[in-house]
Design a protein around this nucleic acid. Structure first.
Length: 271
DNA sequence: GCTCAGGCAGGCT
DNA sequence: AGCCTGCCTGAG
């Protein structure tokens, strides 16, 4: 069935190609296909919203939550207009949303992202899913689930060698083992503050401030998390050396996404 | 050959 | 607490 979601703050390209998710594929007709958990979606952009191709009303509800239907982006963007640069960055990228992704997938994905570039990250994650995930469908060239912590925890570095993830392999295995054993209980993070969650995630080898903040923001929707990567560090050093503007409030993470896109777009050497 | 990619660990002061 | 340096891998 087709389900129409009316929203003026979702641009699929801006959101799905922003580097917060790695499992969406742009089709020739401009639609996107993707998977989260065992849910598969085809979605296409319309003038004032998006069309979901789903099996049931329940599936539509799942995806509404994934795309963060409950957050009022228009009013956040209005709030951001008190800062000149942030105003321009958020208006230009007003179609970006912070997705609510599955925590384990997000954790492993951002461990893989370190000292790496987006095409390679996408490739490694794709091979990980095709090798160790569950094949759900042959549609769209085959859709595979993200492998569970249990499956990954039972693997050796040699098993993961074909991924070509390099030095990150031992981090992936450490994360899978700690999640599987319960030493890191991902669901408990929902009830934690940002600082608590960050320290908790850093028990995993290969997780530092940046990766932890990405997981807090992109999986748990903790919008106070402010992933500080090399790009944002430059932006902060140049424009916000005296501190982040007041108007960011508890939405620093959303501001970060707008600023990241804004400045990345303006930097010539980027693929 | 070289550098760089949305960092981090480990060792040093 | 803050500074180095090396790191798998592949593209430019």
């Amino acid at each position: 069935m087709e389900y129409f979601w009316k929203t003026d703050c979702l641009d699929l390209r801006q959101t799905l190609e922003s580097g917060q998710c790695f499992r969406w594929c742009r089709q020739d007709d401009g639609s996107y296909t993707g998977i989260s958990g065992k849910h598969i979606l085809r979605v296409r952009q319309a003038e004032n919203g998006v069309w979901f191709t789903v099996d049931s009303e329940n599936e539509a509800q799942f995806w509404l939550r994934y795309f963060d239907n409950d957050t009022d982006y228009a009013s956040i963007i209005k709030q951001f207009s008190a800062d000149r640069i942030l105003k321009e960055a958020s208006e230009e990228n007003r179609g970006i949303r912070i997705l609510r992704q599955e925590p384990f997938e997000t954790l492993i994905s951002f461990i893989i992202s370190q000292n790496n570039n987006i095409p390679r990250i996408t490739g490694i994650i794709g091979r990980l899913c095709e090798s160790f995930g569950e094949k759900l469908s042959d549609e769209y060239g085959g859709m595979y689930t993200f492998p569970s912590a249990e499956i990954l925890a039972g693997l050796s570095p040699e098993d993961l060698a074909p991924l070509r993830a390099g030095f990150r392999v031992r981090y992936i295995l450490d994360a899978a083992q700690k999640v599987h054993s319960g030493e890191v209980a991902l669901e408990e993070i929902r009830g934690m503050s940002c600082d608590e969650g960050r320290e908790y995630l850093k028990k995993i080898v290969g997780v530092g401030d940046k990766v932890a903040d990405c997981v807090l923001l992109f999986a748990y929707h903790k919008t106070e998390a402010f992933p500080s990567d090399v790009w944002i560090k430059r932006v902060v050093a140049e424009y916000y050396a005296g501190g982040l503007p007041e108007c960011m409030g508890g939405y620093r993470g959303i501001a970060q996404q707008y600023l990241f896109e804004y400045f990345r777009k303006r930097t010539p050497v980027m693929k």
